[in-house]
Computed example of a mutant assay.
Amino acid sequence: MRMQRWVQAATLAAAAVGPAGAAGGGGVSVGAAGDAVDMLPTFKAVYAATWNGIKLGEITLELEREGTYCYRYQSHARPRAMVRMFYGEPAETSHFCLVDGAVKPVRFRFDHGDDSYELDFDTVDSVVRGAGETRELPDNAQDRFGMHQAVRAWIMRQAPEPPEGDFTFSMVEDDRIAEYTLRVTGEESVKVPAGSYDAFLLERIDPRRIGRFWVAPGADYMPVKVENGKDGDVQLTMELLRYTAKDDAPEASAGES
C-alpha cells in the first residue's frame, strides 16, 4: 500500500468536526434548509487511522481562512515509525472559494517526493492544468482533498434535516477524473475517542467499494468516523481523536452589516 493512497483514503470525507463529545448538540448554526452556505467554520483536527487492524498513525487536518470567502485546507500525516520509514510523511493542500454556497477549487498540491504534483483550476476557461497536461474541467469538479469541504457545504445547505438526494462530483487527480456519488442511508449513534455523536450515515454508491461516513449534526455536519474498503471488506477505519475550533471569521468592512 502506497502512503499517498492511505492519506487519500483516510481523509476521503473526514473534515472539520465540532465540539468534542457533543452528542446531538452544539455545532455550527445554519439557516433554513435550502439556504446557501456563506461560511465554513475553521478548525484543526487530529484523526487516528487503522488499516486491517494495524495502527497506521495520525492525520492532522486544518482549515484556515484566506479572505472572506476563500480557504486553505491542509493535511499532514504522522505515521508510526515503521510506516514512516518506508513511505515518508506526505501532505496535501487545497485552496478553494465559496461561490453561491458551493466549493470551487482553485489550486491543489500533493507533496511526497518524486510523486509530488500540483493542479491549477481555471473555472473561467473550464480547464485544469498540471501534471504535464491541460484537461477539460467538468462543472462539478473537485480536487481529491478539497472535496471534503464540498460535501460539507452540501450537507449544511439542507441542515438541520438529513440531506436528501445524491451528491455527485467529479474528482480530479493527476492521472484521471472519476465520478463519485454519496447518499445518506440512515441515522445512527457512534462513539469515537473524541466523544459520542448522533449521526447521519453517508455512503458511497458503488457496488464494489465501501465508503461509509458518520456525519454528526452536533459536530458541524461532518464525519466523525469513516470506513473504506472493497469487495465487502472494511480495510481502513478513521476516527476523530482531538479537535480545536478556530474563531477567525473575517470582520465586516465599512458598509457591511
Rank of each mutant, 00 (worst) to 15 (best):
R135E: 02
F110K: 13
G67V: 05
D122G: 15
E62V: 00
P160A: 15
L182H: 01
L98F: 02
E187D: 11
E118H: 02
M147Q: 10
P105R: 12
T68Y: 09
G130P: 13
F110I: 05
R72K: 10
T185P: 03
D120E: 11
H76G: 14
R157C: 04
S116Y: 05
T168L: 01
T134R: 07
A153C: 04
P90W: 12
Y87Q: 14
A81K: 12
F86L: 11
E187N: 11
R109S: 00
P193N: 06
G88P: 05
F108T: 02
T134G: 04
T123I: 14
Q142Y: 04
P90L: 11
F96P: 01
A91D: 03
S94Q: 08
V128F: 06
A77E: 04
E179V: 13
E173L: 11
Y180V: 01
Y71M: 07
A131K: 10
V190K: 10
A178G: 13
V184K: 09
I155V: 10
Y73T: 09
D120A: 15
G186M: 07
G67Q: 07
P160H: 05
L182P: 00
E179M: 10
T93V: 11
G165P: 04
T93E: 15
H112S: 02
D100Y: 07
I177T: 00
D143A: 07
S94T: 12
V99K: 13
F108R: 00
T93A: 06
F121K: 05
T168G: 07
V128N: 06
V127R: 13
L98G: 14
V106A: 11
R129C: 08
P162G: 10
P163N: 15
D122N: 13
R152V: 09
E66G: 11
R109L: 01
D100G: 15
G186I: 03
G132S: 02
V127G: 15
T181C: 02
V83P: 05
A102I: 09
D100R: 10
R78Q: 15
P138W: 13
V184C: 12
G132V: 03
P193E: 03
P90Q: 11
E62T: 04
V192C: 02
F167G: 00
H148N: 12
V127N: 14
P138Y: 09
V128C: 08
E136M: 10
V190W: 06
E164M: 13
L119V: 03
F96Y: 14
